[in-house]
Design a protein around this nucleic acid. Structure first.
Lengths: 378, 378
DNA sequence: GTTGAGGGTGAATCCAAGG
DNA sequence: CCCTTGGATTCACCCTCAA
């Protein structure tokens, strides 16, 4: 088992430390290796488990050539029950490994995805989306017996219902020509130069396209995040993770696949940090109204006005404002003046500066631009 | 319960006869009504089950008092369990009602479809396809927290693995500009005139577009087939079934929906029988090679040739052909000559007629056109 | 260099009838 | 029931090679 780069297993039940398990590919069974990794240490998991295809007879193309599908032993299970038990075991371990706010992706087809999704729900994962990968160039239905099976399904779920997961909404929107990224992704299957071949034959029967992983990883992780792929195969997830400046953990049971995987990772060069696609998600630090007073942008005792100067309120030292008999936050008082349940005070109130009205929201923008330090005291 | 057109329930456990249950809409619980229908009497089922039973609205949660003090996990388990029990019960009854070769469709979203699909597999349904209905105009994700949920999933399954189900392959291919119909269907949501409204408000929250049902029904039923919709809602399935010359059975628990449904059916006019789309599936009578000899299109002792005249075989009186040392059917001999396991001899062999080469498949077409009678004997 | 023809290929639960 | 046999059945994309 002298696999270069693969870490030998620890004695007994000892678990790896982070420096040991990050940016590595392990040779071994997903379940057994996962058990050696401490809980709560992974930001995102991408899992492409066996589909349990249950193929019977060989399939021939219309020209009588034999279609080379998935004949591998690893896709064969004795029954639904056995597949379910396998699925529950690795999903349960995945859940342990995820950080509180971590998310998981699982991909499959109608052969297995319903069972996977059902078990994910039962284990407490909170499904955020199902995404359909629509193939531009699927394998046709050679016998004309069904609809052409032209898609696969991905399930994206958070560890818990309460997880405050990462979703790079603005990035994905920009990615999609400023329209919300939808749940249907049109991506070609993995072909051509990208397909890893050994001696002219495909190295792995189900290699996923890098474009798919690019979108997955970009959508829900940040640079530096730790991504686990328990069924690494030829390492598509890991290579894209590395390219995008994420850290990775791979597990692969098949030694031939693992070798492909490591060679591929050696050739993969990360993008420079400054072009990693996360800028759109860098939200400015929140500056509450009280901070404007602390930092001297507004002075206690000053007046703030409604847009048409109909209302005038006094700013108190504790960051409440008073107007007539009303006292409360800038939001609450403005809401009451307007007879509404809620209102955004930042856009309602103005102060006078050098003879003109200035929105307090504008002052807030200035405070953010000025940085964390309060302005010079007079 | 004076619902016009709705049939009163029978006393006890008596079951309806076909004339009683066909082309009707029943007011009542899906399970209870299905139990009154004899088994093996339905060709196709389209089911759009409720999926908002759990974890959504406090009204539908399990009784708080009963589960007082239990953890979130138990609460979740209880809810999923309840939904699963409900799902299994109606699916089991559907399976009883289906003919041996019948098929079923179920539609849902990630909230419920994985559970539905898993239970279908467990009950013995054999999934043929999952189809994704991709919405041209989905509701946006207002909060920007996930991908825009722009699709729903349909599962199409046969009653058994061995079912010889109906799939109108050629019809669907023509429907799709002579390309195989794929598993991704791009159809707008139900809007505008098609959307049933009562007093300006939509009558039903999840009315499906007729285009979706049109494609479903066209793809896997024949005119006259009996189609069941156990959760009929506003009756989209039934109306399209009627329009396409299929028979229908509807079940709807909500009296307001049922009224909409029946009014809609009254307004629905079936297409004339002669334009119903099933012609492409009418396969011509099979004419075996021997019949061409019996009927004098080819004479025993004649030669037949491969396309490039490389090979020449002799037609024997028993409809075998011989070429060199090979003897067998037109198919077997052509396969052996080509070094393949199998080959279609109809497209391989030619005869000479008036100085030109004529495909024996062409002779077969003539024989079919000439009708069942052998040509006049000389 | 460009274009076009031709061949290869992809997670596939892929037949029906008759003896 | 199983086994044999007839004969129906494919789309988009990528690569190579020739013109």
């Amino acid at each position: 088992m002298a696999i270069e780069g693969a870490l030998p297993m620890k004695e007994g039940n000892a678990r790896f430390s982070q420096v040991e398990f990050v940016n590595r590919v392990f040779l071994g069974d997903a379940l057994e290796v996962m058990r050696r990794i401490p809980g709560g240490s992974v930001d995102m998991i991408f899992a492409d488990p066996p589909y349990n295809l249950m193929l019977q007879d060989p399939l021939y193309r219309p020209n009588q050539e034999r279609f080379e599908g998935v004949s591998e032993e690893w896709d064969r299970f004795a029954s639904f029950g056995e597949y379910d038990a396998f699925t529950e075991s690795w999903l349960r371990e995945c859940r342990r490994l995820l950080k509180e706010d971590g998310t998981i992706w699982a991909i499959g087809t109608y052969h297995n995805i319903f069972r996977v999704g059902k078990i994910m729900q039962d284990l407490g994962f909170w499904i955020l989306n199902d995404v359909v990968w629509i193939k531009a160039n699927p394998t046709p239905n050679f016998r004309g017996t069904r609809f052409n099976n032209a898609h696969e399904t991905l399930i994206w779920a958070a560890r818990d219902r309460e997880s405050r997961y990462t979703f790079n909404y603005r990035t994905m929107k920009a990615y999609n020509d400023d329209l919300q990224m939808r749940s249907d992704w049109h991506i070609p299957v993995c072909q051509g130069k990208e397909r890893v071949r050994i001696g002219g034959r495909k190295a792995h029967p189900t290699q996923k396209p890098e474009a798919l992983l690019y979108r997955v990883i970009t959508s829900c992780t940040k640079p530096g995040d730790i991504i686990l792929d328990p069924f690494a195969g030829t390492g598509t997830t890991l290579a894209v993770a590395k390219r995008l400046g994420r850290r990775y953990i791979g597990i692969e049971k098949n030694e031939a696949y693992l070798r492909v995987c490591e060679e591929r990772l050696r050739r993969t060069v990360p993008y420079p940090e400054d072009i990693l696609p996360n800028r759109l998600e860098e939200r400015p630090r929140r500056v509450p109204f009280g901070e404007l007073i602390e930092r001297g942008y507004i002075l206690p005792g000053e007046f703030i006005y409604s847009p048409d100067r109909t209302y005038r309120a006094t700013v108190m030292a504790d960051a409440t404002v008073t107007c007539g008999g009303l006292t409360g936050s800038i939001h609450r008082v403005s809401a009451q003046l307007l007879g509404k349940d809620a209102n955004n005070g930042w856009h309602f109130w103005f102060v006078e500066r050098e003879g003109t009205m200035v929105s307090i929201d504008e002052l807030r923008q200035r405070a953010i631009r000025d940085g964390g330090e309060p302005p010079q005291q007079a």
